[in-house]
Simulated assay, not measured.
Amino acid sequence: MLMSNASRPAKLHYMANGFRVLSPGDHVLCAVTGERIALDALRYWSVARQEAYATAEAATRTLAPA
């Protein structure tokens, strides 16, 4: 039976200039908001934390000093 990647979260390894797909899927979840992010729309992530962010504001909230 073939498995579809639709509606399945991907597992990624985030690198400085991109990411590598470890487990196929069509989206990841924002670490701050829980929002689904399509892989082709993913623009913000943390290499150190290995997390994805839906927006620049979400990334800034997480990465800003307390």
Rank of each mutant, 00 (worst) to 15 (best):
Y53T: 08
C30G: 03
Q50V: 03
L12K: 00
E35S: 09
W45K: 08
V28K: 02
L42I: 03
A41Y: 02
A58P: 04
A58G: 12
D26L: 11
L39F: 08
R20M: 13
G34E: 01
L29W: 07
A58Q: 12
A58L: 07
D26W: 05
G34D: 01
D40K: 09
A31E: 10
M15S: 09
L42M: 00
F19V: 02
L29S: 14
A58W: 08
T60M: 12
A66D: 05
D40C: 10
V32Q: 15
L63N: 12
N17G: 13
T55C: 08
H27W: 08
A48E: 14
T62G: 14
P9T: 08
R43W: 04
T60A: 14
V32G: 03
L29F: 12
A38K: 10
F19P: 01
F19A: 07
T60S: 10
L2M: 12
L29E: 14
K11H: 12
S7K: 08
Y44A: 04
A31H: 06
A56N: 07
G18C: 02
K11W: 06
W45L: 07
L12D: 00
T33A: 11
N5R: 11
G25W: 02
A38T: 04
R61D: 14
L22N: 12
S46M: 05
A59H: 13
V28Q: 02
A38D: 11
I37D: 10
E35G: 05
A52H: 09
L2Y: 11
A41K: 15
N5P: 03
T55E: 10
L29D: 13
M3L: 13
H13I: 10
A38L: 13
W45H: 02
R20T: 15
Y44H: 15
N17P: 03
T62Y: 15
Y53F: 15
T60N: 14
V28S: 01
R43C: 14
I37P: 04
P65H: 05
V28L: 02
N5Q: 10
S7H: 09
E57G: 07
T62V: 12
L12I: 00
A38C: 05
T55G: 08
G18K: 07
D40S: 09
E35Q: 14
A48L: 11
Y14G: 09
A16I: 08
Y44M: 11
V21M: 13
A56F: 09
H13D: 10
L22G: 04
M1C: 06
R43E: 13
S4T: 12
L2I: 14
R61W: 14
Y14E: 05
G18L: 07
A6S: 13
R43K: 15
L39Y: 06
A58D: 15
Q50N: 11
R61N: 12
P65I: 07
